[in-house]
Design a protein around this nucleic acid. Sequence first.
DNA 1: TTGTATGCGTTATCAT
DNA 2: ATGATAACGCATACAA
Lengths: 342, 342
Amino acid sequence: MAGPVTLSQVAREAGVSLATASRAINGSANRTVRDDLRERVLATAERLRYFPDANAQAMARGQTTSIGLIVHDIADPYFSSIAAGVSLAAERAGLAVTLASTQHTASREPRFVEVLTRQRARAIIIVGGRLDDPEANDRMRSSLVDFRRSGGSVALVGQPLLDVDSVVIANSQGAAALARALHGRGYRRFAVLGGPAKHLTARDRRTGFAGALEELGTPIDPALVVECDFTRDGGYEGMRALFAGSPDVDVVFAVNDVMAVGAIAAARALRISVPGDVGIAGFDDIVTLRDITPALSTVRIPLVDVGVTATELALAPPAADPRQVHVEGTVVLRESTPERVV
Amino acid sequence: MAGPVTLSQVAREAGVSLATASRAINGSANRTVRDDLRERVLATAERLRYFPDANAQAMARGQTTSIGLIVHDIADPYFSSIAAGVSLAAERAGLAVTLASTQHTASREPRFVEVLTRQRARAIIIVGGRLDDPEANDRMRSSLVDFRRSGGSVALVGQPLLDVDSVVIANSQGAAALARALHGRGYRRFAVLGGPAKHLTARDRRTGFAGALEELGTPIDPALVVECDFTRDGGYEGMRALFAGSPDVDVVFAVNDVMAVGAIAAARALRISVPGDVGIAGFDDIVTLRDITPALSTVRIPLVDVGVTATELALAPPAADPRQVHVEGTVVLRESTPERVV
DNA sequence: TTGTATGCGTTATCAT
DNA sequence: ATGATAACGCATACAA
């Protein structure tokens, strides 16, 4: 065989010029093709099983049909739900999604941005909390500048850190609302599995939570805010570390759900009853939560929608200034933090 | 701005010809470039922030640097783990991954194959059980023929159905081994949440399970094999349907883990104790399982490895006949099916 | 309405 | 070793 069928072959076979074939198949802007000719071309293309080469079209048009998606870990339900939203929105827009999973390795991020720059992707959606690491952020900013110079647009999910369009999740407010809700249920002795010190999302949730507690007159003991990884295992280890000190605590807030799930597992291993001995709450409301026991209290973020919104934002006509779409969380109280009888 | 920097600009700025610039940057096969010139070119490229256009390279080389991944639902932990493996293997091979999530809609599959055909992807990895639906499979086969004619290769995860390279999961044997293990623990009265009748993976697991029980002299009552969706909600509904008849059952095998998780939830809603009243087992050993209560017995499939293997298979030099890599499952018994005192 | 010719950014062939 | 130049497959400005 002689490789893929080309438009020239279709044109020759249909007895028309390259240009006519192109117009018949793609319905050029103002140009139009006589009905009988178009039909002949279309029939020929169908018969020959012709599929336009997207790379060639991209060259000729100066525009590709793909967008990039960068996540920390596609196997994490938080990211895979957002990815589902991105995939959905991209399909609607007729675009293909190039997936990059960094495995929590910061150095991979700018590398993937470069890959997408070379592909001349129309847009990049970057999902996942950024660190307060000026060096890494500068590198990222710099690679995004390159990407935008190549004609692409960018949308960030999380903090509005990199001077680009972003879907901003109300981390601080959500955590504050959760704190008030827990306080309302009678909890008074709080601890926090706080994630990495420099993790901005974690930090916002910590400070929002602590701030609300302060206002409620039940400030949190800084010693009870433990640092740990932003992962399920981080939550597990953090919980172990926390209870190694036999703290005086009646509820633990993990700054995300996978950490909370790890904390529940740790509690089980430590023979600490949840919620009997201590309540636990998380953040995000990942789908897998509904099958966790006890049902976990959390702050619900509409993850799939976030993915859709971020994609639409990235694809919208470019604006002068960075746009921000704010997403609120909803406190959802479940079995893991029942009404507390004091 | 004048859009992305081109190789011509770099060449001009460096005072060399286009050809030399190209060779300096990409290190052509046998050609070589004088050191000082190469350095000058490279420095110029760096200074101008030049990034080769992958689409143009694809055209000139007749080969792209991307592969496609088709899954039913990227938010399902089964698929997202395999996707992580594909992503990993692709990065190693220096390839980008185009993700397609069909949302369990069969008609989307051939459409995505076509998208990947247009992109001239090097390979497609198709993950997820196929149905015994001749029409849909023919459509799929046909679109895969188009894809391969365009130069791409294909790897399937699941059954060796479409005459292409495949990673074959030992569904029947795994289910049989599980049946024997459960029998060994004293279970005698079996039921199965069987998934869709035409779902081939589900079917293999059902028949493997039933076959082993037959051999053990404790054949299963066909009325206790209930049909349901291959999803978490399918397992939930299937469990409800099963127990609506107050069946005489001491253990339920769900043909995959997400269904088993749904079944546990249904049991909880029905106030049926697991494993007190009935044991439950699944299949796959998805990561999210470790935080399910009670810990679920299952057949462990190394999902990330499967993704890696499928990718390597698709990328290997083409063979005359379809290759098959067989993957065995490992029975893992946990709390959900304790030793049964008869 | 149709066809011809040019350009997109890169690699590869052929001279030099 | 380097440099013109012809592909690659398609879209489009321009000519007819």
